[in-house]
Amino acid sequence: MADLRSPISRVRHLGSAKEGTHHWWAQRLTALALVPLVIWFVVSLVCLSTADYAAVRAWVGSPISMVLLVLTIAMTFHHGQLGLQVVIEDYIHVEWQKITLLILVKGIALLLAVVGIVAIARIAFGG
């Protein structure tokens, strides 16, 4: 059992790209990061449930929540697109549809993350 690759993959030069576990690890690490972030986020929203506009704006713009919110957005969309990728790969078996959907999901995730972070920056720096 020195080599787990199949003979056919060796003949076709389809060698290991050495990143087969990258998706798995990224999904787990973003999940781990989201555990404290999500708890902080829900507790904050509960505290903000009676707040008016000025208070909500002040909260988003305060240094600690700004940092944690940017992290929450980044981790959420990274984790989310990794998860949606697996769902798409499991259920869409027509190649061009699968690829199109994957590109769309990843593109929209990136777009929304940037929109969210820019919104936080505008609130914090008054742009």
């Binding site: 988003v60 959420t76 969309f77 989310g80 998860g83 929304l112 919104a119």
Partner: peptide, 17 residues
């Protein structure tokens, strides 16, 4: 469903901004 929630979070932040 939470992916849709993440979209809603961004809309909320944009609304505050």
């Amino acid at each position: 469903f939470l992916a849709a929630g993440a979209l809603y979070l961004v809309i909320w932040l944009a609304a505050i901004a």
